[in-house]
């Protein structure tokens, strides 16, 4: 049985405005259909019977806010997701980055860090990690804590190993972590060149210039206007001839960047041409 939405369109608008003005977390330009689904999902899981009840809880219980943010923002991710993407990174992009004396990569919306470790592995295998820094950012401090620890369920390793091998990874994947009962911990040296930090794509500015910006499956939760704003933020954060990498169903086709960026192969990687 699919319950009738507890939070309707007008409720949603009101709630998002209030969360933005009270807490500074601005979700007003998120994709309406997705965020409405996420918020109604919270009502079901946390058993809020009415919109009023949910609204009261969020606006009067600051500790509930972090739960709200965690549920509204999607934190599903995996290592070496879309192996052909990583294969292209490994073979076409990373060697290009190697010509720089200092490599800067920004993983925006890194969530629990699976992509961060994937990229760090690629940099190590290319023997470039010693001169590279990965900035891994997310809006949500809780997921960053997980990312910093690098501890993941052992049940995921079969899939991640397959993904790694399909991306043409040649090492024994298990050398990158140590297993402990039902969890694995990725090796310390993989996060030695990573800076984890909160960053809100909606409200925070560009904080550095990079040769590679990776933001995968984050923009799908934003409406077109916000996507455009974030594309401009990325453009301002990329050195000339830098690369922008997106999720497999995301595109810069609807943005101005389309004019000045050139797509690499058929992957969702674009090169800044000026």
């Amino acid at each position: 049985m699919i319950a009738i939405d507890i939070v309707g369109d007008e409720d949603l608008e009101l709630l998002l405005e209030e969360v933005a003005s009270v807490y500074g977390y601005d979700f007003t330009d998120y994709s309406k259909a997705s965020i409405k689904r996420r918020i109604n999902r919270i009502c079901l899981i946390d058993k809020h019977k009415s919109f009023t009840e949910l609204r009261y809880k969020i606006l009067n219980d600051q500790s509930y806010l972090s739960r709200f943010i965690e549920e509204v923002t999607v934190n599903v991710t995996e290592m070496f997701r879309d192996p052909t993407f990583y294969k292209t990174l490994k073979e076409k992009i990373i060697p290009q980055l190697g010509v720089n004396s200092f490599i800067k990569v920004w993983i925006a919306g890194c969530s629990t860090g699976e992509e961060v470790y994937s990229i760090s592995i690629l940099l190590h295998e290319a023997k470039l990690a010693h001169k590279a820094i990965i900035y891994a950012t997310d809006i949500n401090p809780t997921v960053l804590e997980t990312a910093k620890k690098g501890i993941y369920p052992i049940s995921q390793m079969k899939l991640y190993t397959e993904n790694y091998q399909n991306s043409n990874g040649t090492e024994d994947f298990s050398t990158y972590y140590s297993a402990n009962y039902d969890h694995v911990k990725f090796k310390e040296y993989l996060r030695k060149n990573v800076i984890f930090s909160t960053h809100n794509l909606v409200s925070d500015r560009s904080f550095n210039e990079f040769q590679l910006v990776i933001c995968r499956n984050v923009l799908i939760y934003f409406d077109k206007i916000l996507q455009d704003k974030v594309f401009n933020l990325f453009d301002g954060s990329l050195e000339s001839l830098g690369y922008l990498a997106l999720g497999s169903k995301e595109t810069i086709r609807f943005s101005d960047l389309n004019l000045t960026y050139k797509q690499i192969n058929k992957e969702k990687i674009w090169k800044k041409t000026r």
Binding site: S31, A33, R37, V74, V76, I220, Y221, D223, S248, K249
Partner: peptide
């Protein structure tokens, strides 16, 4: 709908993809 994404439809009849649970 692409493999491995949920597909939602916005009021303006554009598609929003979703990689949630």
């Amino acid at each position: 709908a692409p493999a491995d994404y949920h597909l939602l439809i916005e009021k303006d009849r554009t598609v929003s993809l979703d990689y949630s649970e």
